[in-house]
Design a protein around this nucleic acid. Structure first.
Lengths: 315, 315
DNA sequence: CTCAAGCATAAGCGCCGCTTATGCCCGGAG
DNA sequence: CTCCGGGCATAAGCGGCGCTTATGCTTGAG
């Protein structure tokens, strides 16, 4: 029944003291104000402006509207400013979820870039394995998930469901076979899975274990998994102690630089991709876009030149 | 840039959790909401709603708008309610100015009626002679002026300027000639001004004095004004003491019921009208309209059936 | 008396924004 | 696996809101 435009007009009249003045202040013509007031008056059922001679004065009801206008317009301006701050990265929030081993270097580096570039964007970070992080993404509890996916597998079972999501490839992580330094096959340049069919295996996280099973299956055996732990430091400790062999991503190895452990490249090679995942909508949220940019930058990947999040109302 | 309708939509989406639900809540169709959100998004330059699958969720920016919506819409409702209260006479104010002798009975009676009928309308009452009250009316400091005007004078000098004002005749007040009970002409049924040309005169307020001068001028003499006072009680006291004669409105005489004073009807008769004066605009203010109605009722005059102040937006 | 200033009114119309109709996509059930 | 229902997006259409230009009227000042 009564809208912001009406209040704006009433306030302008109160300030300017005339329809013409209000029109100039608002960038309208005088008849527009005249009609606007009339509309307001018949909508509210009350006379708002007293015309006497060639001057106008607000009636009591008019004063009421002009008074309320101050608060309403201020609140509207505040809302606009807050939105504009989010759009301009002077505010906003991005909720990031990354799997544990990515927290080692990639994510901290990216978050440092983001924080440096947009200090007023608040960052929420949670560690989570891909299944959970993607679920959170779908549930609306997360804006960007740093996940990984094993590539080249013709068995689709361990691939995450990425439908309706948008991914950015951050890193290609080669999976190596970690063996104790004294292992008989440690001096070979490469490792063929079939050669390790009788070893005892140490499995990582559930998905990594799936990957192990898949690779071994391809090589024609079912691995004897003697140990399971999600902590790669523990995995490497077990390998060093000669308790088994394990598939370990190169990124982990580079970060941990384990001694007395040899990491053999697999033949054929197996990689996993490290991805930044979000939804098409969230990607257009400025803070999310900036976060993905920072992740790409930290990974040394060209920043996706997604079209500007949105044209900010061309003047 | 952002208006109340937009906020209302965002809030409805937040509450309903879906576009369809919001549309039903607001009485729109679903595409209307869909387009509204899109408009808002391109206006603000930020994505406000995250569409995932067949559910929608507000983004951070969307939440901001929905949050601000509460306050803004509440303020708008408050303004509407306040206006509606004024229109419905559950609030409002009327500023009345009346000349002193009208305060004796007419105005108190009218204000009692008004207060009884609309207890929540606040009344401001100021005593003022017609020139001041009408000036206040023109200046916007008064809503209703109770004034008087002498009628039948062909000299326009004492008539008030009533252009651009609207008047309601309340009472016809006959002007009588007050003489001491023992006066030689006191036993005549009527008085002719010319017979009192050699009397000493007692004049009332400046305008009444003007009226006296006018009547005397018509009768062919200039009155010898020996006393001047604005207080009619004093006037009557002076008359009773035999210090002079005076023109006194019948209303005063009826209220004062002075003893030892004879009030002779003039021949030809002279009357003054007691009027309720306002402006065409103010007359449509509900409280003002009610006040004038109460004045007419108190005066025993049919209440002016002015068209309803305004059609309150026919549903 | 004339002129400038200011509001009201009329006519015109551009465009905003709602509706109807339809398509597409997702998710659940048989 | 396929069907179906629910929900959002899109297209087309158009009614009407609300602004502009043009003009008249009233007022107050010189």
């Amino acid at each position: 029944m009564i809208d912001a435009a009406g209040l704006r007009v009433m306030k302008a009249i109160a300030d300017a003291g005339s329809f013409t003045g209000a029109a100039n202040a608002l960038g309208f013509t005088q008849p527009a104000i005249s009609q606007m007031v009339r509309r307001l008056e018949q909508r509210t059922g009350t006379i708002l402006v007293e015309r006497y001679g060639r001057q106008v004065r607000l009636t009591e009801a008019g004063e009421v509207l002009a008074r309320h206008a101050v608060g309403v317009l201020a609140a509207l301006d505040a809302a606009e400013e807050e939105i504009s701050a989010i759009a301009g990265l002077r505010a906003g929030r991005v909720r990031l979820m990354a799997f544990p081993s990515s927290s080692a270097s990639l994510v901290p580096k990216a978050l440092a870039i983001l924080k440096d570039r947009h200090p007023d964007v608040t960052i929420h970070f949670t560690e989570a394995e891909p299944p959970e992080s993607l679920a959170a993404l779908r549930a609306g509890d997360c804006d960007v998930a740093v996940a990984f996916a094993y590539e080249g597998m013709d068995l689709g079972e361990i691939e995450e469901d990425l439908t309706a999501l948008v991914t950015h490839k951050l890193l290609d992580d080669e999976v190596r076979l970690a063996v104790p330094a004294g292992h008989p096959l440690a001096t070979q340049g490469v490792a063929h899975m079939a050669d390790f069919s009788s070893e005892e295996w140490i499995a990582g996280c559930p998905r990594c274990r799936g990957h192990l099973l898949s690779l071994a299956g391809h090589a024609g055996f079912a691995p004897n998994v003697a140990f399971e732990t999600e902590d790669y430091v523990a995995v490497l400790g077990l390998v060093r102690a000669g308790l088994g062999v394990a598939l370990v991503p190169d990124l982990i190895l580079r970060a941990a630089k384990p001694e007395h452990v040899v990491a053999l490249p697999l033949e054929p090679a197996s990689r996993r991709q490290i991805l930044a995942v979000t939804t098409p909508d969230l990607q257009r949220v400025p803070a999310v876009h900036a976060a993905i940019g920072a992740l790409c930058e930290a990974a040394g990947v060209p920043v996706p030149q997604v079209e500007e999040p949105m044209a900010p109302a061309p003047v």
